[in-house]
């Protein structure tokens, strides 16, 4: 499958500087999605996190997983209300740094009454940086 490059802004409502998915490389709605984010020194949040020692805030790794999780939905989320309802068992194992190509892997664990549970992993070159379960609510 070709990387999905142009479809991202049509699918997610997020925009610069908060669109944190660069491309989607695998997508099976309702089951699994894999996306990528390339971290550069130009990221606005790296100016102050931290001065002289840039590293991606852990909460943004969770946001990346949540945005990648948007691709588990079959239909476009553009204009749709989707919210983060919970974060469970988040682990930050190693920092994400400028130059890293982050692999965002999400798997649907189940859904009930508009609420979906996602298991996500952020990794770089085969190393796990962050794992977490997320709950997202679609209204």
């Amino acid at each position: 499958m070709l990387p999905e490059l142009t479809g991202i802004p049509a699918h997610l409502p997020h925009r610069y500087p908060f669109l944190l998915v660069d491309r989607v490389i695998e997508r099976e709605p309702g089951v699994r999605a894999v996306a990528e984010k390339l971290v550069t020194n130009g990221e606005p949040y790296l100016q102050g996190h931290f001065e002289g020692r840039p590293l991606v805030p852990g909460v943004l790794l969770l946001e990346m997983l949540a945005q990648a999780g948007g691709f588990l939905e079959a239909e476009s989320l553009h204009g749709a209300a989707i919210f983060l309802a919970g974060v469970q068992d988040a682990r930050f194992k190693a920092p994400a740094l400028p130059g890293d190509r982050l692999r965002l892997e999400v798997q649907a664990e189940g859904a009930f009454a508009g609420l979906m549970k996602i298991r996500g992993t952020v990794s770089c070159e085969g190393r796990e940086l962050c794992t977490a379960s997320l709950l997202v609510k679609r209204l």
């Binding site: 309802a85 919970g86 664990e109 189940g110 859904a111 009930f112 009454a113 609420l115 979906m116 549970k117 709950l135 609510k137």
Partner: peptide, 23 residues
């Protein structure tokens, strides 16, 4: 609450092998 409901749906499926199909 509704988050607990999803956890229970997943727990029932995992522990007892029973699916709750819909609301």
């Amino acid at each position: 609450d509704s988050i607990d409901a999803l956890e229970l749906v997943l727990g029932i499926e995992q522990v007892f092998g029973v699916k709750i199909e819909d609301e």
